[in-house]
Structure formats: structure tokens, C-alpha cells
């Protein structure tokens, strides 16, 4: 599966869920494993973080203390660029000497020079495409909801695994669903979703809002 080709719409099924209560914690496991987001790449880590989470600089500085791009530790979030097929991981403060070593601009950065991200000087074009993101630690609690509200893209099998374990609880929580922009009755929504998540050809664009917390119609 080529993620960029698939991200370019043709195999994406859009599922928008409006839920009676916050179901974000059910997604913590897939957010640790990694999901995709579609945004303008070719921009700095800071710009992309602000875009996809809708957060400000203060929150980035205070809360996102560890950032890895393609498995390497990023110190300077203004000069390192997110690219097509990049994999970005973000975490709150981590314990242990190893945890402290992984921090941005850590006092112990000499301990991990082998895995520090060095940005190439070549220019990189700004364009819209998918990249992978993983969220760890306390940031799951703080940022997952924002990301799900903006929308994530994940493999059908990921959602299938998740739903198979949590199906009963999830069913009760769904207020209603939109599937490919069409509003579906709560009683029918599960059947429609299953049709797509059982088919590995699909990527699912998932967008979740909680009833009573949004300005729009959820």
C-alpha cells in the first residue's frame, strides 16, 4: 500500500462520529502505534504542530518536551522540516537519564549524538500530503482530542482491531455518524462502518466530535 497514493483520496472512506461522551481514550493505543494526518508538509516541525493540533507556541514549549522525526531526536523545531512520508513522535517529559537525554536541547545531548536529527540543507517544497504521527505519555490526554477533532487517517485493520475489542462500549456512545458525508441513523451506523473497516483496501479518515462540546451540529 502506498500511503501517498491512497491519501490522495481514492481509497479514503470518511467517517465522522458524533459521540455522547468523550471516547478519545479508546484511541490511545492506535495513537501510540501511529496514525496519518494530511497537511502541508515542507514546513517546520513547529508550524506543522500548530496546524494539526491548533495549539500555540507556549503549549509547544511547555508541554511537548520530546520530539522525534523518523526516530531521531529533534532539538531545533524551527529548522527541521516535516516531509512526505515523515514519521513524527511527540511526548511530554520523560523519566530516567534516557528520558532526559531524549529531551529537546537536553543537557545530555552528547549522550545521543548517534540519533540526533540533522536537517539537510536542501530546500523542500511545500505540498499537501500525509505523514505519520505518534503521541505518547501525558500528551495523549492533552492532545489526542484535538487531533481527533481535526481528523486522523488510519488503516482499516487498525480500526477493525480497535472496534473488535471495544465494540460494545463504542456502540452505546455513538450519537450518530456521517459516512462519506451522508448522515446515518445511530442504529445503522455500525453496519455501515463494519462494511468498510473489514476491507483492508481502505484507509479511514476518522473525525470525532463529542456532543455538547462543539459549536456545530454535533
Amino acid at each position: 500500500m502506498n500511503i501517498q497514493e491512497d491519501c490522495a483520496e481514492k481509497r479514503i472512506i470518511k467517517i465522522k462520529l458524533c459521540t455522547k461522551k468523550d471516547i478519545t481514550p479508546l484511541f490511545f493505543i492506535v495513537l501510540q502505534e501511529g496514525v496519518f494526518v494530511k497537511t502541508q508538509v515542507g514546513q517546520s516541525v513547529r508550524t506543522v504542530l500548530k496546524d494539526i493540533f491548533n495549539i500555540n507556541d507556549e503549549l509547544i514549549e511547555k508541554r511537548i518536551s520530546t520530539i522525534l522525526l523518523d526516530g531521531k531526536v529533534v532539538d531545533d523545531i524551527d529548522s527541521v522540516i516535516i516531509k512526505e512520508n515523515s514519521s513524527l513522535s511527540i511526548s511530554g517529559a520523560m523519566p530516567g537519564l534516557a528520558g532526559a537525554t531524549m529531551r529537546r536541547h537536553s543537557k545530555y545531548e552528547t549522550f545521543r549524538t548517534a540519533i540526533t536529527y540533522i536537517e539537510k540543507k536542501d530546500p523542500y517544497p511545500v505540498k499537501t500530503c500525509c505523514f505519520a504521527i505518534k503521541i505518547f505519555n501525558i500528551l495523549l490526554v492533552e492532545l489526542a482530542k484535538k487531533l481527533l477533532k481535526q481528523g486522523i487517517i488510519l488503516h482499516a485493520y487498525q480500526l477493525r482491531q480497535l472496534f473488535s475489542e471495544k465494540k460494545d462500549r463504542l456502540k452505546d456512545y455513538i450519537n450518530y455518524a456521517y459516512i462519506n458525508e451522508t448522515k446515518v441513523k445511530p442504529s445503522d451506523s455500525w453496519g455501515f462502518m463494519e462494511k468498510y473497516i473489514n476491507d483492508d483496501r481502505y484507509l479511514i479518515y476518522l473525525n470525532i466530535k463529542t456532543s455538547g462540546e462543539e459549536e456545530d451540529d454535533c
Binding site: 520530546t66 526516530g71 511530554g92 520523560m94 523519566p95 534516557a98 531524549m102 505518547f136 490526554v141
Partner: peptide, 18 residues
């Protein structure tokens, strides 16, 4: 925050990713 919420095992993901 991190240690009370998740214990030392909160390191797994980040070490793995790195």
C-alpha cells in the same frame, strides 16, 4: 505527572521510537 500517571514504563514508546 508522567511517573504518577504511567510509571517508568512510559519510557517504552520513546526508546522504541528512537
Amino acid at each position: 505527572e508522567a511517573l504518577p500517571a504511567y510509571g517508568t514504563n512510559v519510557l517504552t514508546n520513546i526508546l522504541n521510537e528512537a
